[in-house]
Structures are given as structure tokens and as C-alpha cells.
Design a protein around this nucleic acid. Structure first.
Length: 565
RNA sequence: UGGGGCGUCGUCAAGCGGUAAGACACAGGAUUUUGGUUCCUGCAUUCGGAGGUUCGAAUCCUCCCGCCCCAGCCA
């Protein structure tokens, strides 16, 4: 019996492609493209599109082009071209030699525009921007023809050539497609194809003073590149008739445009405008702030490309508007790191513990497993001594019912260490704050096992005071406290839902000495706490800086929460 | 109230006339030197609503309701 290949879950785009392959619509080819405009940073919504387009190409042994949609020089910069390429590469995709720019096609686009003029399907309009808007009509009222609509082909040809030559001022004239001012689809009411715009283009410099509009440039770029399936987001659906119109009138190779719903993620925002607002008004440290849903932010946070790709696979592709739960993204990174991240002990809020019956000058090297999920990752030695730090949270003077950590008179296990029992609580005389614990240890429990078989419920992580190294740890959390900060039908500013605790910087953490060698980008699981990543900018040898990627699932927090209610 | 879309579990999402996959979340339980992981179990008699066609409808038809997008010389 032949087992079926493990196939990916179906979605409507794969269905279309399968069908096209069956009917040999494109001679068995699958050619997609990812067409970002280089006017900003990519975010996880783009990752969905990248995974979709490049993923399809891999799956069907086709190609996927990276094409910059750079038809508006007033907004675009090469800085973004670079960052976009970094992000796509980081996600794990390779466009090989298929890197293109819409600006590569300016000359050809111009020729096609001339061709449309020649068949009387395009004309030069002298109306002002304002007038064009008025003539366009409204959603419920049809538009009316521009007085310049009936110009002769020759005059149009002449005018368009002179537009290119730079004879006219910015905004004084445009080239329009001659379609139908009465169309119920606003996009078909003689859309603008070219505008006069004097601006330095990042690739063509000042060679052009007229630039094609998206609708005209995009379909032709797709056609030139021999794209089969031109995948874009839902808001372009109304543009499809126009996409088809240009290609039909020009009688050129005709790809099919397919629209899917863009990604929305809970507890964050996705629009470029809002992200820019957060950056420019200083709510975050920059586009790559680890709390940002940008690819660079996610990368700095410590997410792996594998986990992001996996996330994009799991969310599926469909045509309905949706809001994916951030919990799924978090699940994906935990799933990945659980298998790969070495375990290590780190104490974020140190509480000093003196083990009174442990010899003053003794130091033991205890064997600690690096990853229980993967024996191949081996083990390491962790120094243990009389004075250690434990997590402040792991001690309660008045332990609640299901609290099985340390409390006066109680015994717990130190991970890979000994059983210890809390004998005495030392408090600050002024404030009453617990500043130190005096404990005893059972020498018979080395490694964490009791010879007499007695069980202990809790296991705590710890570090030796004398051997641990100081570290800064940044605790990142969700950027917003509200699942959807952008309520439709509400004029509340989304920024009022920013989580005031989305970043907590801890300066006096102590981590085990093995972390002295932690290098930029390394990811660890701090046992019982979460997954952390060595910061790529601020970390120094002997003084590491860690970013929290995500916490571990915390069942105790849930229990405690429930008890409170 | 013009046009274009979309409505299947709390959140995503399969399903394409033969009697509701899966994932996350959630809730129980088992195992555990991470209250982690893993493993079981439960979680839509019902697919926005109402009619109709059919032996049979989430799937076809009709009407209704709700949500999203479109009036840039942005993409």
C-alpha cells in the first residue's frame, strides 16, 4: 500500500491552481510574485503573502518573483528595498535571479500607453485633480465625460509625448483610460494611467517625469513576467475588471488575479499608518521594536523563521475577514523552541537563600540536562554553593492552598540540586520585606532524588550567588490590552489601548555562568519562565541582555487566578 | 439607498447534494526533577435567518439580516 504524501491543507487558491494544472491552462506552469511597494517595513501580514506566494512556487515547482512595485517615487526609498529583501530572505525564501522592479518596465509601459492611445482607448485630460473628482460622480451617481475625452488620437499622442518630455507642470495633465464614466465600478470611470510627477526615483533618478499608476503598471508587469496567478488582497477585487481590461485591450498574455483576505492579529495593529504612528510618536523604540508585528520586530523579539512560516501555514487562506488569535503565534514559537532551545537557569527577581548546613567553602558541580526533549543536546555542569538565589515569586510566607513552592517549614527540590527546607525568614526591620531565607538541605538528596523515596511537590530553579553572572532582562508582552484596538464604529484612539506593561526592564537578574558565552541571537529556555533571546544590539560578554520571546504556559497562574475569583 | 465581497465552534478553517475534518483556545484526567513537554478525554444534532427544491441540503433556489471594501493624479 502506498501511503499518501502528507499533503498541506487545502485552500481555495490551491484548488484553483490544481484545476488550472488539470486543464493545462498555463502549460503546467505556476508563476507567482510578491510585489511590495518599497515605502515601509514588512509586517507579519506580508509574511502571510510571502509564504503563500513563495510557498506555492515551491509546492508546484514553479517560480516566485520578488518585484518592487516602485511607481510612486514620492514615497519610495531604497532603504526599504534593502530591508524588504532582508526580511524575505530571513523568512527562508529565495527569489534566485528573479528580482524585478516595476520601474524596469517604464519604457515598455510607455509604449503600451501609446498603443492604447492609438486604438482610442486612452486620452490626455487637462482637468485638475479636483475636477476629475467632481466628474467622477459618486457611488450612487454616475460620472460624466471630461470635455477632453474626445480629443483626436493624434492630439493625444502629441500631448502624451510632451508630457514625457517635461513640457507641462506637475498635476496639469494626466493620461486616462477611456472606459465608461457611467460604470457602477468607480475604478472603471476612466481611471488615471499616468500622472506628471517630478521627483527623484530611487532607480531611474530624474529620467522620467511621468509615472504610471498601480492599475496600469501592475497588470502589465505581471504579464511581462509571465505570472500565472497574481495573488493580492481583497481590497483589489474591485480593480480586477480594470486589470483584465488593460490586458484584453492590449491583447497580451493574461494572468489571473486572485484575492484573499489579509491577516489581522489580535492585540496588535497592522496598518502601515498606525505602525508609523507608534514609531514616530515614540510609543515603541522603532520599526524593529520587539513588540512590533513587523518582521524585523518579530526577528528582534527572537521568533524563528520556521515558527513564522508554520504560523502562516496554520492560519490558512480564505476570503473572509478574520482576526487570528495572537495565542496561535505564541503557540507556534513555543512549539518550535521547546524542541530546540537549550534549558538554562536564570533568576529574574533574586531572593537570597543561605543553606545553613552547607559547608561555607564548598562548591559542587551538578549535572544538568540541556534539553529533556533532545538527549542529543547533552548536559552541562552547574555550580552549587551555600548561598544561592531563587525566584522571589517562589516563596510565600502564607502559602495558599495549591502553592507547592517554598514556604516556612516546607521542603522543595532545587532543580538538579538538593531538597531544601525553609527554616527561617529574614525580614527588613523597617519595611518588613523578606530579604533572605535561611534553609537547610538534605545531603542525601543530591541531584534531586531522596534516598528514602520521599516526594516533594515543587521544583525550583536557582543560581549560585557567587558563580552566577548579572544580566539585564527585558520582559516583553502584548502591545495592546484589547484584542481589537481598532474598533470600527468607534472614535476611541487605538493608542489608548496600549498595554502600559508591554515592556518591563529588569536590571538585577542573575543567570547561570554557562550563559557567559551567550552570543547574539542565541535562544534559551529559562526553566519555568519562558523563552529568551540574546539581544543583538546591547548584549556584551559577561553582561548579557535578554529579550523575552514568550512565556511558558503557566498553569499555576491560571489556578491562582481562578482561586481569586 | 450604486457596485463588489463575505457569513460553518470563543478564534482560524476544511467541506463543493449523501448526513459537520483539523488546529489554537478552553475544561477535565494521566505521566513529569520545568505547575513546561507529552498523552488521553470533552468541546457545532448543526453551518447568519426564514421559506423552497430533493429520498437526502452547510452545499441548489428565493427572500431577508449582518459585516467588510470602493468616490487618491496611493499601492
Amino acid at each position: 500500500m502506498i501511503t499518501k504524501e502528507p499533503s498541506l491543507p487545502p485552500n481555495f487558491i490551491r484548488n484553483i491552481i490544481e484545476e488550472d494544472l488539470k486543464t493545462n491552462k498555463y502549460e503546467g506552469r505556476v508563476a507567482t510574485r510578491f510585489p511590495p511597494e518599497p515605502n515601509g517595513y514588512l509586517h507579519i501580514g506580508h509574511a502571510k503573502s510571502i509564504c503563500l506566494n513563495f510557498g506555492l512556487a515551491v509546492e508546484y515547482e514553479g517560480t516566485c518573483n520578488l518585484r518592487f512595485d516602485d511607481t510612486n517615487p514620492s514615497k519610495e526609498e531604497s532603504e526599504y528595498v534593502q530591508s524588504i529583501q532582508n526580511d524575505v530572505r530571513w523568512l527562508g525564501f529565495d527569489w534566485k535571479d528573479r528580482l524585478f522592479y516595476a520601474s524596469d518596465y517604464f519604457e515598455q509601459l510607455y509604449a503600451y500607453a501609446v498603443q492604447l492611445i492609438q486604438i482610442d482607448k486612452a486620452y490626455v485630460d487637462d482637468l485638475s485633480a479636483e475636477e476629475i473628482r467632481e466628474y467622477r460622480g459618486t457611488m450612487t451617481q454616475q460620472g460624466k465625460n471630461s470635455p477632453y475625452r474626445t480629443r483626436s488620437v493624434d492630439e493625444n499622442l502629441d500631448l502624451f509625448r510632451r508630457m514625457r518630455e517635461g513640457e507641462f507642470e506637475n498635476g496639469s495633465r494626466v493620461l486616462r483610460a477611456k472606459i465608461d464614466m457611467a460604470s457602477p465600478n468607480l475604478n472603471m470611470r476612466d481611471p488615471v494611467m499616468y500622472r506628471i510627477l517630478r521627483s527623484i526615483h530611487h532607480r531611474t533618478d530624474d529620467r522620467w517625469c511621468i509615472y504610471p499608476m498601480y492599475d496600469f503598471a501592475h497588470c502589465i508587469s505581471d504579464s511581462i513576467e509571465g505570472i500565472t496567478h497574481s495573488i493580492c488582497t481583497l481590497e483589489f477585487e474591485d480593480h480586477r475588471p480594470l486589470y483584465d481590461w488593460f490586458l484584453d485591450e492590449l491583447k497580451v498574455y493574461h494572468p489571473q488575479q486572485i484575492e484573499f483576505a489579509r491577516l489581522n492579529l489580535s492585540y496588535t495593529v497592522m496598518s502601515k499608518r498606525k505602525l508609523r504612528e507608534l514609531v514616530e510618536q515614540g510609543y515603541v523604540a522603532g520599526w524593529d521594536d520587539p513588540r512590533m508585528p513587523t518582521i524585523s520586530g518579530i526577528r528582534k523579539r527572537g521568533y524563528t523563521p520556521e515558527s513564522v512560516r508554520n504560523f502562516c501555514e496554520r492560519i490558512g487562506v480564505a476570503r473572509r475577514d478574520s482576526m487570528v488569535d495572537m495565542a496561535l503565534l505564541e503557540y507556534c514559537i513555543r512549539e518550535d523552541l521547546n524542541l530546540r532551545a537549550p534549558r538554562v537557569m536564570a533568576v529574574l527577581h533574586p531572593l537570597k537563600v543561605v543553606i545553613e548546613n552547607y559547608p561555607e567553602d564548598r562548591v559542587e558541580e551538578l549535572e544538568a540536562v540541556n534539553n529533556p526533549e533532545d538527549p542529543g543536546m547533552g548536559s552541562r555542569k552547574v555550580p552549587f554553593s551555600r548561598v544561592i538565589y531563587i525566584e522571589r515569586e517562589d516563596f510565600r510566607e502564607d502559602a495558599p492552598k495549591k502553592f507547592y513552592r517554598l514556604a516556612p517549614g516546607c521542603e522543595v527540590r532545587l532543580r538538579y540540586g538538593y531538597y531544601i527546607k525553609c527554616e527561617k525568614v529574614v525580614k527588613d526591620e523597617q519595611t518588613g520585606e523578606v530579604i533572605e531565607l535561611r534553609c537547610s538541605y538534605d545531603p542525601e538528596t543530591r541531584g534531586g532524588w531522596a534516598a528514602d523515596g520521599r516526594k516533594v511537590k515543587g521544583t525550583l530553579h536557582w543560581v549560585s550567588a557567587a558563580h552566577s553572572i548579572p544580566a539585564q532582562v527585558r520582559l516583553y508582552d502584548r502591545l495592546f490590552v484589547k484584542a481589537n484596538p481598532v474598533e470600527e464604529k468607534s472614535d476611541v484612539d487605538f493608542k489608548s489601548y496600549i498595554n502600559p506593561n508591554s515592556l518591563e526592564i529588569l536590571e538585577s537578574c542573575r543567570v547561570e555562568p554557562s550563559l557567559n558565552n551567550a552570543t547574539s541571537g542565541n535562544r534559551y529556555q529559562f526553566e519555568r519562565l519562558g523563552y529568551f533571546c540574546v539581544d543583538s544590539m546591547d548584549s556584551r560578554k559577561g553582561q548579557p541582555v535578554f529579550n523575552r520571546i514568550v512565556t511558558l504556559r503557566d498553569t499555576w497562574a491560571k489556578i491562582e487566578q481562578k482561586e481569586k475569583m
